[in-house]
Design a protein around this nucleic acid. Sequence first.
DNA 1: GTCTATACGTCGATAGAC
DNA 2: GTCTATCGACGTATAGAC
Lengths: 198, 198
Amino acid sequence: MAYRRTAAVEQRLEDRRAAIAAAAIALLSDHGYRALSIAAVAERAGVATGTVYRHYTDKSELMVGIFRDLCVREVEAVTAASAAGSATGRVAAMVETFAQRALRNPRLAYTLLAEPVDAALDAERLVLRRAFAAAFADAIGHGIATGEFPDQDAGLAAAALVGAVGEVLTDPLHTGTAATGTVPDLVAFALRALGAPQ
Amino acid sequence: MAYRRTAAVEQRLEDRRAAIAAAAIALLSDHGYRALSIAAVAERAGVATGTVYRHYTDKSELMVGIFRDLCVREVEAVTAASAAGSATGRVAAMVETFAQRALRNPRLAYTLLAEPVDAALDAERLVLRRAFAAAFADAIGHGIATGEFPDQDAGLAAAALVGAVGEVLTDPLHTGTAATGTVPDLVAFALRALGAPQ
DNA sequence: GTCTATACGTCGATAGAC
DNA sequence: GTCTATCGACGTATAGAC
């Protein structure tokens, strides 16, 4: 009989992969991308270096894999924040949610958002930004439909907000500390830009 | 007597370097980063491939060198656009200038602005963004001082505008065509965000 | 410009699952 | 018995120090 993986083995494989990803995330959270060596990941995950390559073809794919895993959560959190309420409230909640979650783990967020890594991650970031923009476009379109926001190109405004939020957070995430006014100011900027009533 | 480069030789070297850079820019303008092979650059510049490496240590440095050269011009153009007039007019002129210049050569602008290339270029982009943000912060600070804009964190607003403009242009630059309303809409977004009077 | 240290990715051997 | 995931030392490239 040909070899086939049992459920137990499948589970172990998954666990190992998760352990490797978790180790990598911990390293990124502590010291950013420069700390992400395969040797360090392997040691922290309790496996040999060669094992890492059984789960990820190379370091770049490991980084992209982590990015995808983590960003799915972020998109979900932001989408959840935009579920109900006035359009103004939704957009405010989205910006606030994104910013506060990022600032809670600044080093990791900086690596995901802006740290120079490689072209593969850059490409993935472009995809992520479109996902966030789609979520914003929904909320903005809602606001236009209800007359809360003046008529405008929702797609353009959404992209602009994604860019604005990312760029404003880049520096605070990099240094590790944001001024107390950063998040409310950012929200105010976004709402003014959309023409929301005061 | 030790060897020393004469002025004539020095000039020839500079010319060669300029020719190589020009060839690289032409390739990027035509087909983006994927067309930037050292062999293609050398052929177009009329030099041997080895000669390219006498002026740039590797492809990454060539790309960064081009980026710096071109971006100096862009920062100058945007700064010049902000030289005089009302703060509203200055900011509008800056956004318009940047966007229109980019859209005039979309493929090249996309490569400079957002195309996945490598970490070295990413790092350079971060520097460039700060330069643009500084220019915007000047104009915004001016507007706050004259009472044209409501009181706000000029640095935050400047970063937000840089992010917004870059993100909004990314897609049109990538596809090669912008809707006719893109630039005016972007300007309107920026002025609303700053709280400029209608 | 050289030299050393660091780190990526590979490979043959091994242990264990089927 | 066959096949596979794991190990960990090694070759090689590269980057930073002197």
